[in-house]
């Protein structure tokens, strides 16, 4: 799993960075209607069924995470009756019961919130670290770039899951805020800390590509300051592939959270999480396979939703992919 994820991250980096050619958003100069990179991209997105599947699934997931009580058919995930232990799915209880006799659908539905919170919080930190470090390294180059790229290389040497595993094991013994809790914040932070390097490399390479463009030289010749050039002129032209990568990464990070929790270092009971449910269900897979099946399906759908959206976004932002 860990190696596979690292491979996936790298593959996404390659796809988002090198095949899109977004460094110079090329637009059709013959077209006379009001358009820009983003309105063209929206036009292409609207026609892509994969984008709609992904975004409807994501929207559903967000609503589920915000208002889980609407989707549990009146059941309480914490109201359990051992008499119902491991009961199979039925017409009243679609997902059956878990070992403790709790309604399983309610548990799976309530698990969405933690997954989403961790995925989004981690990706925000990944973006922040990636954009800031990558932009500075790419823009200033030379010595600064050398130091920052080597730091990223060091983090690359640590696999995402292994690094997060160690950090989450050691975290509670320290008094660093957030990290010493084993809550969603700690898991998200651990994932982001070992997952920001690809975003950094993407931003760095984009900034290097955009930096040498004529309009940056022109902006400098007009007396714009470094910070203005970087923030106003370079970053808006460099973000598109990062956006694609980010969307895909939310899915990857949600899967990684489930992995960590499954391994026992992520969220702890009594938190409700798909990783915990899969871990608890695996011992009972012969007698109650639905305990592994349902959280796994929902987890897969969630990851898939973000990856579909990212793929559609990448195609839409690449003019060469358009007919």
């Amino acid at each position: 799993m860990t190696d596979q994820q690292q491979m996936d991250l790298r593959k996404d980096e390659v796809e988002a960075g090198t095949t899109t050619g977004l460094a110079s958003p090329s637009v059709d100069p013959l077209s006379s209607r009001q358009n820009s990179l983003w309105s063209d991209a929206w036009g292409a997105l609207k026609r892509n069924p994969l984008f709609w599947i992904g975004s409807v699934l994501t929207a559903l997931l967000v609503v589920v995470a915000l208002f889980p009580q609407l989707f549990v058919r009146g059941a309480d995930p914490r109201a359990c009756d051992l008499a119902n232990s491991k009961a199979l799915p039925s017409a009243q209880h679609w997902f059956g019961y878990d070992q403790q006799g709790c309604d399983y659908m309610a548990n799976v539905v309530y698990g969405a919130r933690n997954s989403l919170i961790i995925g989004i919080f981690a990706v925000v930190v990944v973006l922040l670290l990636g954009v800031v470090v990558g932009a500075i390294a790419g823009y200033f180059g030379g010595f600064v770039d050398g130091i920052m790229s080597r730091i990223a290389d060091i983090f690359y040497a640590l696999p995402l899951i292994l690094g997060a595993l160690v950090l989450l094991r050691v975290g509670p013994t320290t008094d660093i805020p957030i990290l010493n809790t084993r809550g969603p914040g700690a898991v998200a932070l651990a994932l982001a800390l070992f997952g920001w390097m690809t975003a950094m490399r993407l931003v760095r390479s984009q900034v290097i590509a955009v930096k040498s463009s004529d309009y940056v030289a022109a902006a400098r010749a007009m007396g714009a300051s470094n910070s203005r050039i970087l923030i106003r002129h370079i970053l808006p032209n460099a973000v598109a592939p990062v956006l694609v990568y980010t969307t895909i990464t939310i899915g990857v990070l949600i899967a990684a959270e489930a992995t960590l929790t499954y391994l026992g270092v992520g969220l702890q009971r009594p938190a409700i999480s798909w990783g915990l449910q899969i871990a608890a269900g695996q011992d009972l897979i012969r007698t109650a396979p639905h305990l592994v099946l349902f959280p796994s399906i929902v987890l897969t759908l969630t990851v898939m939703a973000f990856i579909l959206m990212g793929d559609a976004l990448r195609d839409a932002l690449d003019p060469r992919q358009r007919a």
Binding site: S24, P25, V27, P29, S36, L37, S213, D214, Y215, A217, A218, A219, A221, M222, G223, H233, P236, N237
Partner: peptide, 17 residues
């Protein structure tokens, strides 16, 4: 305000966004 410059290729010298 002191010295200013215009470039050869105006399309690539203007920011597309």
């Amino acid at each position: 305000p002191g010295i200013s410059m215009i470039f050869q290729d105006a399309l690539s010298s203007l920011n597309p966004v």
